[in-house]
Structures are given as C-alpha cells and as structure tokens.
C-alpha cells in the first residue's frame, strides 16, 4: 500500500514537471487533467470520499473543459486575423 502511494505521488511530480516542458498548450491541459484524476485517487486513499467525488467532477470536468474552450476560441481568432493579414 505504501509502495502504491509512493508510485502515485511520483506520477504527480512527473506530471507537474511535464507541464512546463511540453511545446503545445493542449498537451499541457491534458496532462493537467490526468494530474487531477490521480489527485482524486490519492484523496480516496486518505479516507476522504467527499473530496474525491468533488475533485473528480470539478478538476477533470469543469476546469479542463473551460481551458480547452478558451484555447480554441483564441486559436480561432488568431486564424481569422492571420488570414486577414495574409490577404492584405
């Protein structure tokens, strides 16, 4: 059990480091989603089921979806502007 906990904590540190080293923003958001899910599992191992439910629904559900929506909106505006600039 202790070994499993140490494995999950190592995965957390690896995810947190990997967010800085990726080149694309979308992969950073996906890595952040998996960080949230593993954090939820650790809270279950620390005997707090309320926190695990809330973090699973909120961290991997709402926050990551909002990140992806904002990235897509900014990419769309960027494409429209660069097309406009290209035509000029």
């Amino acid at each position: 059990m202790v070994f499993f906990q140490i494995l999950l904590l190592g995965f957390l540190v690896f995810c947190a480091l990997a967010v800085s080293f990726t080149k694309r923003i979308i992969s950073a958001v996906v890595i952040f989603m998996s960080y949230s899910i593993v954090m939820s599992i650790i809270w279950l191992m620390l005997e707090s089921p309320d926190l695990a439910l809330t973090e699973a629904a909120v961290g991997a559900g709402i926050t990551s979806v909002i990140f992806l929506l904002v990235i897509k909106r900014i990419n769309t505006m960027e494409e429209a502007r660069s097309n406009a600039r290209g035509k000029k």
Binding site: P49, D50, A52, L53, T54, A57, V58, G61, I62
Partner: peptide, 22 residues
C-alpha cells in the same frame, strides 16, 4: 441522488451540483 443523500453517504451539495452542471 448524490445531492439529496448528502447527509447519509459521501456527497452533498458540491459534488451533486457539479454532476448536474456537467
């Protein structure tokens, strides 16, 4: 179900509300 049974089992207002919103 999670919302209404918040005082008996794990859950409550925040988890149930997040699931409904999702």
């Amino acid at each position: 179900y999670i919302l209404l049974n918040g005082h008996l089992t794990p859950g409550g207002g925040f988890s149930g509300g997040a699931i409904l919103g999702s």
